[in-house]
Structure formats: structure tokens, C-alpha cells
Amino acid sequence: MAAQATRQRTGFWQNEKARGEALTAYLFLSPYLIITLVFTVGLLIYAVYLSFTRFDLFTPPEWRGINNYIESLGDARFLRSLYNVAWYSLIVTPVQTLLAILMAVLLNAPIAGKRFFRTVFYAPSVTSSVVISMIFIWLYNRNGFINFGLSQLLSRDVTVSWLQEPRGLIEIIAGLFGGTIPADQWWLRGPSVALMAIMAMNIFTTAPTFMIMFLAALQDIPGYVYEAASLDGSYGAHRFVNITLPLLRPVILLVIVLSTIGTFQLFDQALLMTAGGPLDTTLTPTLLIYNEALGKAGPPRMGLASSMAFVLGAIIFVFTFIQRHYIERGTEQI
């Protein structure tokens, strides 16, 4: 039977049939292939080319070799923007991952109103970044609810202009002990109050997205694993640390990688809430690239902007590669 079928398929008929199927498949794929070849692959190649040129949109690109890369790596504002997102990622990624796990574990238990709580928890994640930014600009204003709430909580007047405060975390702590950080050592100052205000807001909107991923993973853990654990006398915190967390490891890796990719590309909120200010302490690489490319600060510098984008891409790649390597090696040891 099988041999007969094979023999039948070796003739001209078979070729024509296979060719017909391949042709149909590529016809079905053609809208995607055309769009992606032009707007993804094409743009990627064009970006590589642009990153080696000087281009202001109006006169033809002029070849510069690797000078854009040298210039971007020496650009004070670009380095400042990388410093900002490095702090941003360092704080936001662990905090939102932990919060997401906590919320997922709470929701995974047999509780009344599970659907209701899940829906409430997830609501900030479906709202647009623009709306969230508008709401928080209002909440963060000097007369806003954040200052009011903190004043009530600490029973003293809090009048911080959250989004206009350039002082850094380390600078503030040093100030408590009478220390100062000179202007030429800005990189010792830590994330500014304005940047931390954006961090808090984004943790609020992104943690629920990752919560859903953890929830899906928790629901995939078979019940007998927990039954066996309880027979061995493993409950509560002990069971969470020794059974649940190791089983969640692949999802934790995924969430950390996705979070790193996302945090390094912060744009909407930084543009809307602070436009990179005060004193460039919320300037992000993507915002700088946008400003350079569109000529928001002088003539458009498309080539330089492209080289900055590739430096950013390389940094994201290296970080996610290290995370992947580190966490996967950890898993093998278990």
C-alpha cells in the first residue's frame, strides 16, 4: 500500500501536484511576504545603510563610514539616555515581575469573584498609554492626589513637583547626610524623581499584562504536583519557593526578557509626561532617536539616529542574551 503510493508520487503528476500546492501556498502568503519584504526586511537593510551616512531628508545621503557610530557612542545626550533607561529597566523589571507573580498567585487560588478580580486587575493594561499618561500628569501635579495622599499618610505637607524634579535618588540620599554630587559626575546621581514617577506609573500598567502570562502558567501546573507536595508536608511559603517558583522558571525568563526589551524602548510616556526633561533626566534612546530623525533639535540627522538605534538594539540583544544564558543554565542545575 505504502510502496504503491510512493511509486505513484514519483511521476510527473506528483511534481505537478506538489508544485501546485507550493504555488497555492505562496499565493496565500503573498500579502504577508510583500508587506514584510518592504516594510520590515527592506527597512532593516535601509537602516543599516543609513547608519553609515549623513542624511537630512532633503539632500542625498553622504557616506560617512563608521563615524556615526563613533559619534553616537561619544554623544553626551545619548549616553545620558542609555543611563536613564538602564536605571529604569533595573528597577521596573524586577518590581513588576514580582508584583505580577503575586497577583497571579492570588488569583489562581479558589476564591469567590475570581473573574471580577481578574478583570479589575487587568484594566490598566488595556488602556492606552496616552490616557494613562494624561491621568497621571494630573495625579502627579503639585495639587494632585499623589501629594495629597502622601501628606495624609505622613501627616506632613508634601509638595513635590514630581514631573519637574531633576534630583536623583542617590543625590537625595547623599543630601540627607550633607553630601553633594558635582555636575560633571551626573552619572553618580541615580534616577531622577521625574523618572521614578514614570517608573511607578508603568509598573502599574505593565504588571497586569505579565500577571496574565503567570496565571496561564500556574493553571498549567497539574493538581497532582500539589497533592504530592501536601503529602510531603509542603505548604504555603515553603511550597511556593520549592515547587511553584521552579515550575514558573521558563515564564519568569520570558517575562524578564520581554520586560527588558520593553523598558529599554520607553517612548510614549517619556514624550508625553516630561518630553525628556527635566535636564534630560527622563530622556530615553527612542525619544532621542525620534527627536534627531525628525529634526526636533536642529536639522534632521537620520544617519546618526539610525546608528543610535543599532547601538540600542545591540544593547538589548546582549542583555536578553545574558539573561537567557544565565537563567537557562540555572534551570539545568535543578
Binding site: 500546492e21 507550493a22 501556498a25 511576504l33 526586511v41 527612542t286 525620534y290 530623525a293 538605534a309 538589548i316
Partner: peptide, 27 residues
Amino acid sequence: LNFPGKELVFSGMLATMMIPGAITLVP
């Protein structure tokens, strides 16, 4: 459907999902 290059096109598609938006913004 079966067609030559299926695996290549599919994994190429997944790879494009990893390209940071900042890179394609300028071009």
C-alpha cells in the same frame, strides 16, 4: 500546506518579531 522554504519563512517571521521598533522608525 506543504511548500519548499516553509520552515525558513516561518522562523524568519518569528525573527522579525524581535527587531526593536527604534531600528525601523527612521527608515
